[in-house]
């Protein structure tokens, strides 16, 4: 395996781990979304690394990167939109306080 690729993938895995831990352990909606963004950053890093070191002539990878970036942005936009709606209704975006719906 190409060493640079391994380094990039390891960093990606670390980002993923941090992001996933953050997303699962945080209770604030905004912080969770930040964790999600880290996971997506890891995906971006992976994509670029695979493209650069394994498949340099595959243009689809670049397109994929753009799409993932768009996903990041749009997901964040909708996430914050919902956070605002929640804030207006409840005054807090803590997941811990969201216990009304249960059966």
């Amino acid at each position: 395996m190409i060493p640079e690729l391994m380094i990039a993938l390891s960093v990606g895995a670390a980002l993923f781990g941090v992001g996933l831990y953050g997303a699962l352990s945080q209770t604030n909606l905004v912080m969770i979304i930040m964790g999600v963004e880290l996971i997506l950053a890891a995906a971006l890093l992976n994509l670029v690394a695979f493209w650069r070191y394994l498949h340099p002539d595959v243009t689809a990878a670049k397109m994929f990167v753009l799409i993932v970036m768009a996903v990041m942005a749009v997901e964040m936009a909708v996430g914050f939109g919902i956070a605002i709606a929640r804030f207006r209704s409840r005054g807090s975006v803590e997941m811990e306080e969201a216990r009304e719906l249960r059966g």
Partner: peptide, 25 residues
């Protein structure tokens, strides 16, 4: 936009965002 709906959306969103990004990764 009431309490129940925003709570539902929030849970739905958190799950969706996390699983979606894990999928992409």
């Amino acid at each position: 936009r009431d309490d129940a709906a925003t709570e539902a959306a929030m849970k739905y969103l958190v799950f969706g965002a996390v699983t979606g990004s894990v999928m992409i990764y």
